[in-house]
Design a protein around this nucleic acid. Sequence first.
DNA 1: CGTTCAACCTGGGCGC
DNA 2: TGCGCCCAGGTTGAAC
Length: 271
Amino acid sequence: MRRGIAPVLGSTIRAAEFVRSARIKPLSVSPSRSSFQRRVAGRRIEGLGRAGKRVVIELAGGDRIVFEPRMTGLVLLAAPPSEEHLRLRLTLAGRAKPSELLFWDRRGLGTLSLLDPAEFARRLGPDTLGPDALELDPALLEARLGASKRPIKVALLDQRKLAGVGNIYAAECLHVARIHPIRPCASLKPAEWRRLHAALEDVLGEAIRYEGSTLNDGTYRNALNVEGGYQSCHRVYGREGGACSRCRGRGRVERIVLGQRATFFCGRCQR
DNA sequence: CGTTCAACCTGGGCGC
DNA sequence: TGCGCCCAGGTTGAAC
């Protein structure tokens, strides 16, 4: 998402418009819609970043816009999948640049905030967000998760321990690392932490190159409203009952619920 | 401290 | 066709 909106770097925000449609609940904005509009108008976009699963727009003066897409939110430079679920339009100034940046969200669980540097450090600091999943080494991964008795799958999704891993990629990484999702973190051996670290890098890196996973509901799109491609690479996620690709049919993909989330794995090659 | 669970929303897919 | 149910890339806060 962050890379997709790279073209807006250097543009100036003319105005923020909260788009509302009947029947659809309005976007949740912090601290308030009016102060958001007042504080972003006329500001230049000086940086684009990411904090775990959030997209961050750094403005001149130090304020940061934080998009939290949750399940169905999209940050777009192109026309959205539907007009009805469009939530925010940032009108941009600057030649040969996109003229607007949109936030679209079908379910409406996503949030938008504008944070000054102190608020940003407090709200998205180390107390709420662990080290990024792409900036680890095996020792740090074990140090963050290793003492816990929780199932490794549940711990991988805990953003305070490790930032950036969601439900699909937790399942995929554990399959690649051949680790059963229910295993207590504390039971993992050094070789398994190394495999899990490698799997995080490989799976997340590949998923980024494929621009994400567009599931059957078709929701996820990149900034140009184009579907991702990584869903065709999924080894276990959403493949309940299918043959495990590593076992060549000797193992079947199983689905259980762990920490209230669907969890897919091969019971034969994940131990 | 850790686990569990409801809640926040909308819509797609399925069985009947 | 309509209805009820289950499901969904997530996070928070209350209750145990």
